[in-house]
């Protein structure tokens, strides 16, 4: 498939890059990425991947747009309040680039549906806001041998890492298990600065584009943290899997997925 004249112009700033070129752009157009969560992280990821011409993008989220989302979830607008987030994000993405096919999954992702869902995609982006789903995404991606980008944001802090099967530790190698129930403040109590979603989500989009085009070095075996108060990034080297991880170790104790109890702030009040 050759790039047409409109595509050559649209993606010219990619094509000019030695590391991407027309070949890399074609890889992007042929790629399939699934974004789980159409909120703070999922919005910038979706917009940048659509702009980049990632050919097929899946978006999964069960929620509808709420007024309190608009401070950080930049693909949704005031007129979208009440609309399913996946629909609102899809419309924003398609408005940027009609080259892109957006598949929407307006449902909760759980142990019963996640494996079949991720199977169709090359790369998964975790844009969720709770530990239960983060562990579920990790375990499902390990089982299905899918690479994924993890990220989390809270207050003025953000972090991300990338898992590539067989190349480095998984999320569970690093964080072991769900934190005790009241150890981490809930999102509603703690707050988050809106631009944090943009910073970390954009970094996830960067990891995704680099993975697809085979460019540079990914955050495999490294956790990148960002502190917005001090404007400082830190890269933490992660130990490789010690073989004892409950999901990606030599003798995994987790052999089937289960749904963890959602922390209180995730409950519908």
């Amino acid at each position: 498939m050759a790039l047409n004249d409109e595509q050559i112009e649209r993606y010219s700033r990619h094509i000019l890059l030695k590391e991407i070129g027309a070949k890399g752009q074609k890889k992007l157009l042929n790629a399939k990425v699934l974004i789980i969560g159409a909120g703070g992280l999922g919005c910038p990821v979706g917009l940048y991947l659509a702009a980049a011409g990632v050919g097929t993008i899946g978006v999964a989220d069960a929620d509808t747009v709420d007024l309190s989302n608009l401070q950080r979830q930049i693909a949704h607008s005031t007129a979208d309040i009440g609309k399913p987030k996946v629909q609102s994000l899809k419309e924003s993405m398609e408005a940027i680039n009609s080259d892109v096919t957006v598949n929407t999954y307006e449902k909760f992702i759980d142990s019963s549906n996640i494996r079949a869902l991720i199977r169709d995609y090359d790369f998964i982006v975790d844009g969720t806001d709770n530990f239960a789903t983060k562990f579920l995404i990790n375990d499902a991606c390990v089982m299905e041998k899918k690479p994924f980008s993890h990220a989390g944001i809270l207050r003025f802090q953000g972090q991300l890492m990338t898992y590539i099967p067989g190349q480095g530790p998984c999320y569970r190698c690093v964080f072991k298990d769900m934190p005790p129930k009241d150890a981490i403040p809930t999102c509603r109590q703690a707050g988050v600065i809106g631009a944090m979603a943009g910073v970390i989500g954009s970094l996830q989009a960067m990891e995704t584009v680099k993975f697809i085009t085979g460019t540079g070095k990914l955050l495999v075996g490294e956790l990148l943290t960002y502190d917005g108060i001090n404007q400082s990034f830190r890269k933490i080297k992660l130990p490789p899997c010690d073989g004892k991880c409950a999901i990606c170790g030599e003798h995994p104790s987790i052999t089937e997925l289960k749904d963890y109890e959602q922390p209180a702030c995730e409950l519908k009040l």
Partner: peptide, 14 residues
């Protein structure tokens, strides 16, 4: 510019 080089690159890539 820059489409001169963009077009050249696209053809050269093939």
């Amino acid at each position: 510019c820059p489409n001169t080089f963009v077009k050249t690159k696209v053809v050269l890539d093939e």
